[in-house]
Every structure is written in structure tokens, then in C-alpha cells.
């Protein structure tokens, strides 16, 4: 868990979430999450029927990868809120970097919490996820 004494507004935490995203990892996510939409795993359907250039990642895979960065930063069981907007699609071959920025340290119902701004970008510096999170911190 983050310690109040060791953090301040403006602090950032950055992590590479995935390098050169493989189709197999998207398949892995489909199997674990139960979302078997062929747009994510079936190149033939996606290019020939749906008309996309290739399969693409589930938005929730990007949110999950970003969540790994987030819990590695704030600690286990510390999150109170985590929300995102999906701003661009994520394709096989993409490299994603996640960033959390402290925007406020405050008290909520007698507990110290930190508000974070979240952004995940691809190798072209285009945001694929923007969002926010609130986590409990140690005083």
C-alpha cells in the first residue's frame, strides 16, 4: 500500500504493460474472460466479413493490463474505484505503456485515499485508455 509520507500530488508511476502484443495473448484473454467474440480471435472472420484490418484486443484486456500496473503501484486490496474510457483500439503488435498520476490526497469516510489519473498509450503515443482510480493509502 502507498504510504502518505512517501507520496505527493504530481507523483507518477509508469510501466510497460505489454510489448508487441501477440494474438495468442488476446486468445488467452478470450478464454479466461469468456468473451469469445471472433473480432478478437478470428482473423478470417474479422478481415473478410467484418472488414477490419485485423483482429483487435478486447477493451477489457487493455483495462486488465492497465489494472496490473495500477495494483502493482497501490498494492493488493487497496483499490476503491477504477474506471476507464476506451479511446482507441489496440491491435496485435502494439506496445502499451500505462501511467498513473497522483492528482489528490484526501480523506473519505475517515480513511486516507489517493485519487489517480490513468492513461495508457500505444507505441505512437496515442491514448488507448484514459481513466481514474481511487485507492486507500497508509497513514
Amino acid at each position: 500500500m502507498l504510504k502518505e509520507k512517501e507520496i505527493k500530488v504530481g507523483d507518477t508511476h509508469t510501466a510497460i504493460l505489454v510489448e508487441d502484443l501477440k494474438r495468442t495473448q488476446i486468445v488467452q484473454y478470450a478464454g479466461a474472460s469468456g468473451d469469445y467474440n471472433p473480432l478478437h480471435t478470428d482473423e478470417i472472420f474479422t478481415t473478410q466479413v467484418a472488414g477490419y484490418p485485423s483482429v483487435f484486443a478486447h477493451g477489457m484486456l487493455s483495462m486488465g493490463l492497465t489494472g496490473t500496473m495500477l495494483t502493482n503501484y497501490v498494492g493488493d486490496g487497496a483499490l476503491k474505484k477504477y474506471g476507464v474510457r476506451f479511446t482507441n483500439q489496440v491491435w496485435p503488435g502494439d506496445t502499451l505503456t500505462g501511467k498513473a498520476t497522483i492528482i489528490e490526497i484526501r480523506e473519505e469516510e475517515g480513511t486516507k485515499v489517493v485519487d489517480l489519473m490513468i492513461e495508457t498509450t500505444n507505441q505512437n503515443d496515442v491514448a488507448v485508455i484514459t481513466g481514474n482510480a481511487t485507492a486507500i493509502i497508509e497513514t
Partner: peptide, 28 residues
């Protein structure tokens, strides 16, 4: 599948010793 190697999600022995007391689910 979300690239998370944290033992709290797969190692019962480790997870038992944490404050949470066992394996927990990741945020999504």
C-alpha cells in the same frame, strides 16, 4: 491473461500470509 504475475493471484501459501488472508481476484 492480463500479464499479472502477482503471487496473490496464484500462490495460496503466499496469499495466506498477507493481510487479505488468501487468494483474491484482480480488479477487472
Amino acid at each position: 491473461s492480463v500479464g499479472d504475475a502477482n503471487p496473490i493471484y496464484h500462490d495460496e501459501d503466499y496469499a495466506k500470509e498477507t493481510e487479505l488472508g488468501g487468494i483474491i481476484a484482480p480488479p477487472t
